[in-house]
Amino acid sequence: MSLMTHFLGAAGVLALTTGAALADPAIIFDLGGKFDKSFNEAAFNGAKRWADETGGSFKELEMQSEAQREQALRRLAEAGSNPIVMTGFAFGDVLNTVAPDYPDTKFAIIDMVVEQPNVKSVVFTEEQGSYLVGMLAAMASETGTVGFIGGMDIPLIRKFACGYVQGVKAVNPDATVIQNMTGTTPAAWNDPVKGSELAISQKSQGADVIYAAAGGTGLGVLQAAADQGILSIGVDSNQNHLFPGKVLTSMVKRVDNSVYEAFIDGDALEPGITVMDLASEGVGYALDENNEALITAEMKAAVDDATAKIASGEIAVHDYMADNTCPVE
């Protein structure tokens, strides 16, 4: 009997949810957390902008552990959310298995390519943005040594590193770039203590500008750099305001725009691969009142020149993920 009521209840819930299929969009944040001052927060800002402008509402879900991914996706899809946007490469495999089960639902994934007929993949040319901040780092550096601190050691982060090194070498071919990865597990995104130790270690080896592409760990890097009197470069969101005058610039990835556009498209979301690059202003470097004193007119001119050349194809920045190698060290 009680089993029967369970089934009836479930059927009732199912009927209700399908009835409500005139869908709100949904967004799932990755393990870094919604307010990471970086990647996920940018995504959240995009969603919020959509809600403010259209007066619509959206569902959101924050991952707490690796094991939740599939369940979270299925739950949102079954609840009728459409489109469902997810932030982060780690959703790739899961989405590949889940997407075919919900052919009427549109999905958008950021930072990863998933080839399914109902999935829009948004990828950014991080190597181009990193190239620009690499140029700035090399021009701001007095020692000729700059640093890079990555989060978890994955190809995506190597892509940041590779673009950065290319930018540094474009300005100063003799420059040394010290590279460190925080770790090989997702814990590497949330270890500011280690980030700060890595920054201190790089400083003692002569680095005076350090680029952190490491989520929450990056906050430790920026903190240590500010404490030690050297410069740092933020990532994903504009992090210049965290330590005004101590953060040289930030490599910004307009994740917010992508989420906003996906929400605007709604049901009509166009599947396929979208590449957000310098030309479409998907990536870039941040210049605001917090760092204007650090970026000289000369530096700005050089970077703007490079921006135009990359956009026109005159400068080709190598993408690490294309062949998993980097031409420069």
Partner: peptide, 17 residues
């Protein structure tokens, strides 16, 4: 020591094992 000496504030899961 982790939150107020080594770093400047708390970040979730900052003990990192």
């Amino acid at each position: 020591y982790l939150a107020t000496a080594l770093s400047a504030g708390f970040v979730k899961e900052m003990t990192a094992g």
